[in-house]
Each structure stands twice: as C-alpha cells, then as structure tokens.
Write a protein that binds this DNA or RNA. Structure first.
Length: 287
DNA sequence: CTTCTTGTTACTGA
DNA sequence: ATCAGTAACAAGAA
C-alpha cells in the first residue's frame, strides 16, 4: 500500500545509505523479473548516483550506466537495506510487525543488490506485483509522460481546473486515483483528502462547486506533505529508515475507521465501494 | 470453504 | 472518446 508519502519516505531513507556505494553483484531470485532486467549485469562496479521519484515510482540513476532502474512496490513490495555485518533491518516498505527483523524474516526475496563492503539492498514482495525494470532514457521519458501533476511540487490551480474540466463525468474519487491526472494518490489518501475537503467520494466532477474544487486542490498538497512529514502511514506495519512506524496513521480520519464515530461530528463513518475500491467517508461532514 | 484486500492494466459494454 | 465495472495479477488474512 505504499502511496506517495511512503515511497518518498523510503526514498529519503535509502538515499542516505546507498548513494555512491559500489555495486558488487546483482541477483534475480524471481524469474518473472528476468525479462525486465536484460543487461543488468552491466551495473556491476557501477554506483547509484541518485534516487528520484515520480508518483509512486522510484527511479535509480547510475554513475556510469545510461540506464535507469525503476522500482514500483505496488501493494506488498518492500525495499530493504541491510548494512554490513548486521542483521538488523534498516529500511523497509511493509513488514509484518514493527519489531526488528533479520534477513530470515523476508521470505519473498525477488531481487538483490550486493554492495562492495557487504551491505545489501533487496526487494521483498509477498504477492509479486512489484517490479524492477531497467529502461533507457527514451523509455523513461515515455513512462514519465504518463504521470499527472506531482503534488509535492508547485501545482497551479488553473492546471488542476483544466484536468477537472476534461473529466466531468468521472466521480471525484476515481479522478484522484487516476495516476495520469494527479500522481501518487492511492486509496488511503484519496479518502483522507476528500474528508478534509468535505466532499463525498461518489460526487461527479461536474457537480463540484468552485469552493469544493478549491478545497480538494489545497488538501491534495496539504495532506500529502503532512504525511511525508509524518513518515507515511503505517497500516500494514510499514517501517521507515529508523525502523519507526509511520505516524500519519494517528491522523487518519476516515480510512479504516468504518463503524467508528467521526471525530468531527460523532456520526458513524461508512464504507462503500466507489471506483472499485473500499471507500470510507463521513455522510454528515462530506456533502 | 469463501471473501476481501491494495496498484495497475486490460478488457468489455454502455 | 469517456466512463464504470470487472478480471487479472498472487498471496495471505479473516
């Protein structure tokens, strides 16, 4: 379930550990990934120069190689860094408990980078939806072109309005989840943004008042930035670079709170299916 | 046993 | 062309 704030937290954590470290070996454990990693052995002796992110996608850049390594964690993917001579977990995506874990706790190893001094970075993924993929500059640009507005950057309200106009018949939740429109929002933050904006998720875009559009717009950036600050949301026990849980979970107002009282109005939080997803909302606070 | 879960893409039918 | 709905992907939890 990593969405933009969790992926950004992972990126920040990883940057501190793996930049400029020499790669000794790359290993593929899941054959499903092989066709996406053609030529991966050329990365031997190279160094990770930078890790970028667009939406929920991580982009590894290298010092020598002109190729880019893309990592998408999808729902259960974890990127884990283990320092030399340590079994302690340093950086994670999701894990089954908030406790310290060693290597043996990761039973779904898919891909691994060994660094020169014995530390490793690996992809662990239970459900095998996550991918790592090597692409060239042209392919990278094609992929980048499919992403919409980046909420952590300065977005113009006028650009957001234009997007809304083009999707008049869509419901607003489906709009927020569409990565080609606004990137990085998943099921948790879509629900939280709409609660904060006071708008029901099933509302059609054309029905939104100007004031509601403004509130949705401002809350996209506000909530995602706040969540990054809080190091993401620990729901399936995601942990960050320091092995800490994401604190945004304490700030969730509707997600996963169906059947509980709304903190604002005491009404019961409901859960319905909207845009094919479990959707949480307060029928009183959201119009 | 069945049902549900998230992110994304592909497909179908309106 | 849009949009909603659903299957698929894979595995585990309830």
């Amino acid at each position: 379930m990593p969405e933009l704030p969790e992926v950004e937290t992972i990126r920040n954590g990883l940057r501190r550990f793996v930049l400029n470290k020499e790669i000794k070996e790359l290993k593929i454990f899941d054959k499903k990934l092989t066709p996406f990693l053609l030529g991966y052995k050329k990365l031997k002796n190279d160094k990770i120069l930078e890790i970028d992110r667009i939406g929920k996608l991580l982009i590894f850049k290298f010092k020598k190689s002109p190729l880019f390594l893309l990592v998408h964690l999808k729902m259960t993917g974890q990127l884990v860094y283990l320092p030399n001579n340590s079994k302690k977990l340093m950086v994670g995506g999701h894990s089954n408990s908030g406790q310290e874990k060693d290597r043996e706790n990761f039973k779904h190893l898919r891909f691994q980078i060994n660094f020169l001094k014995g530390d490793v970075l690996f992809l662990n993924d239970t459900r095998r939806f996550a991918y790592v993929k090597l692409v060239n500059k042209i392919e990278l640009n094609t992929i980048k072109g499919k992403f919409g507005l980046e909420p952590l950057e300065k977005i113009k309200y006028s650009d957001f309005l234009k997007l809304l106009e083009g999707r008049a018949n869509k419901n607003i939740k489906a709009f927020l989840l569409d990565q080609s429109l606004v990137s990085g929002i998943g099921n948790i933050y879509a629900d939280e943004i709409l609660f904060a904006a006071g708008v029901l998720p099933q509302r059609k875009v054309f029905s939104l008042k100007e004031s509601e559009k403004k509130l949705i717009f401002s809350n996209i950036s506000r909530i995602l930035k706040l969540a990054v600050k809080k190091r993401g949301t620990t729901f399936s026990n995601y942990i960050d670079a320091e092995g800490q849980t994401g604190e945004f979970v304490k700030l969730l107002k509707v997600y996963g709170r169906d059947g509980q009282k709304c903190q604002k109005c005491q009404n019961l939080i409901l859960k319905d299916r909207v845009a094919g997803r479990g959707t949480h909302y307060c029928p009183r606070c959201q119009k």
